[in-house]
C-alpha cells in the first residue's frame, strides 16, 4: 500500500543560533507507525530539532524528506532546492504539532479551535468540519466542552484539545514537544492516555518527553540527544536497561535521582 520507505527522514540537519551550534548533522529516519521518543538533558536541542522539522526554525543546512519526497534542502542558511509551493504545503500538512504550552487560541471556543484550520486551510465545509471536530473531541473525552473557551479548561483538558486540533488536519506524523511538562502531576496521566491511544491506532509520533515511563511503555525507539547530537538510540529496553553511552548513563542517573 505505502509506496515510500520512510515517512520522515532528515539528512545532516544542522542549526546555528549565531555562533552557537545547537544541532550537529542530525540523521534520523522514521518508518510509518513508529513511535520515537527523544530524551536528553535541557539545552540538548530537542525542541529545536522538532521545530526544525516543522520549519518553525530555519535550519542552517541539511535535508528533510517527507514520504521520501524532498521537503527542504538548505546549505549555509540558504535554500538550495526550490520546492513548488503546492507540494511544500501538502507535505507540511502531513505533520501536526503539539506544544508544551498548548497554544490554544484563547478567543475561540474549543470547537472553533479545532475547526479553524480545516475550514480555512483545507476549505472543508463548515458542517463537515464541525462533525469531524466533534468526533475528535469525543475521542479525547471533551465532547461536553465544545462551547467553552480554553481559559475555562484545566491544563490537561487544554492539551487534549490541542491534540484534537492538530489531528483535525489529518496529519500522518505527530510531533509532541514535552506535551506534559507544563501540567500539574495529576493531569499528566489523561494526556499520556490520549497519546497512547493514538500510538496504538498506528500514528507515527516523534515525542520529546521527560516521562520515562511513557517512553519505556509506548516507544518503539528511544533517542538520547545531548549537545546537538543523537548520542545513542535503540529500543526502550536497550536504552533504559543497558545504556552504552556515558552521556546516556549520566542522564538516566540524574533523572532517576530526581524522582
Amino acid at each position: 500500500m505505502k509506496d515510500y520507505e520512510y515517512i520522515i527522514k532528515t539528512e545532516g540537519v544542522s542549526k546555528h543560533f549565531g555562533k552557537l551550534e545547537v544541532l550537529k548533522n542530525i540523521d534520523l529516519s522514521v518508518k510509518k507507525g513508529e513511535v520515537v521518543c527523544i530524551i536528553g538533558p535541557s539545552g540538548a536541542g530537542k525542541s529545536t530539532f522538532l521545530r526544525s522539522l516543522n520549519q518553525l526554525e530555519k535550519i542552517t543546512s541539511g535535508k528533510i524528506y517527507i514520504k521520501d519526497e524532498l521537503l527542504l534542502h538548505r546549505e549555509h542558511d540558504k535554500t538550495v532546492e526550490k520546492i513548488s509551493p503546492d507540494r511544500h504545503k501538502a507535505l507540511m500538512l502531513e505533520m501536526g504539532m503539539v506544544f508544551q504550552r498548548f497554544n490554544l487560541f484563547p478567543h475561540l471556543t474549543v470547537l472553533e479551535n479545532v475547526m479553524l484550520a480545516p475550514v480555512n486551510v483545507k476549505k472543508v465545509p463548515a458542517e463537515q468540519a464541525k462533525k469531524e471536530a466533534e468526533e475528535l473531541l469525543d475521542k479525547v473525552g471533551l465532547l461536553s466542552k465544545v462551547d467553552e473557551y480554553p481559559s475555562k479548561l484545566s491544563g490537561g483538558q487544554q492539551q487534549r484539545v490541542a491534540i484534537a486540533r492538530a489531528l483535525a488536519m489529518k496529519p500522518e506524523i505527530m510531533l509532541f514537544d514535552e506535551p506534559t511538562s507544563a501540567l500539574d502531576p495529576e493531569l499528566v496521566g489523561e494526556v499520556l492516555q490520549v497519546m497512547k491511544d493514538l500510538a496504538n491506532g498506528g500514528m507515527t509520533m516523534i515525542v520529546v518527553t521527560h516521562e520515562m515511563g511513557f517512553a519505556r511503555e509506548v516507544a518503539d525507539r528511544v533517542l538520547l540527544m545531548a549537545d546537538g547530537i543523537i548520542a545513542e538510540q535503540g529500543s526502550p529496553d536497550q536504552i533504559f536497561d543497558n545504556p552504552q553511552n556515558d552521556r546516556t548513563k549520566s542522564f538516566l542517573k540524574s533523572v532517576l535521582n530526581a524522582n
Binding site: L56, K89, F99, R101, F105, L116, A117, N120, V121, R165
Partner: peptide, 27 residues
Amino acid sequence: IDKGQNEAARALGLTYGQTMRKVIIPQ
C-alpha cells in the same frame, strides 16, 4: 500577543494573512 499563537497557527498550515486575520488581530 504570545509568539506561541503565531507558531500554533503556522503549524496548522494557516497562511500569514489568515494567521493575522483569524488569530492575532482578534486577540
